[in-house]
Design a protein around this nucleic acid. Sequence first.
DNA 1: AGGGAGATCTTCT
DNA 2: GAAGATCTCCCTT
Length: 209
Amino acid sequence: MLTPYQKFFTGRPTPRIAQDLLGTTLYYHGPKGTVGGLIVETEAYLGENDSASHAYNGRRTAYTESLYGLPGTIYLYQIRGHYCLDIAVQAQDVPHGVLIRGLEPCLNSEQMAANRRQTGFAISNGPAKLVQALGINSRKLDGQPLENNILTIDIARYYIPREIAVSSRIGVNLNKKDGNAPLRFYVQGNPYVSQMRKRDMDLSKHGWD
DNA sequence: AGGGAGATCTTCT
DNA sequence: GAAGATCTCCCTT
């Protein structure tokens, strides 16, 4: 049986789950204290049939095993020397995932800036940037559940996006089948969304209602 | 403000 | 040996 928390990560289409995560809060209770932020950008990856997915064509190795885990399993992978955070969604053995791509710091942002050695929106406006901002620099948490963990998401939404924007995913091979699929979701105007243009930023409310 | 090259490192073929 | 769900710096507008 699934817990109510696990049920949040299954039972409806993956793009819908990705949108429902916008405005929830990500926390990391790390060695330097607790840091955290609001999720402002996500991408959906649809498993075996999605040419951009790590599980395309059913690819299943020790490296990608977490994607096949229970809903709410952490898939922490490395790409070109950077760590990225993905959440396995849907039932066990269904390798769908939601990539967290942007985070608005809301707890101990000074520590996050220090972890990044950056200031301003560059602290966490990208999938590898936000993981570094949290202070995570290993795959130690890969394969673990989010529920009741030191890395977790509070799925209660205290902030509601005024508008959810949709686009094709970033960094995927455009020449493959699903290279242009509209599976990227973000809080329109939030400055911590990757590649948000300055003229599109809502600097007063950050795109929240 | 936007685009492109180079760094980087693990995994799989 | 090649490719990948990226980032930074530097260059040109």
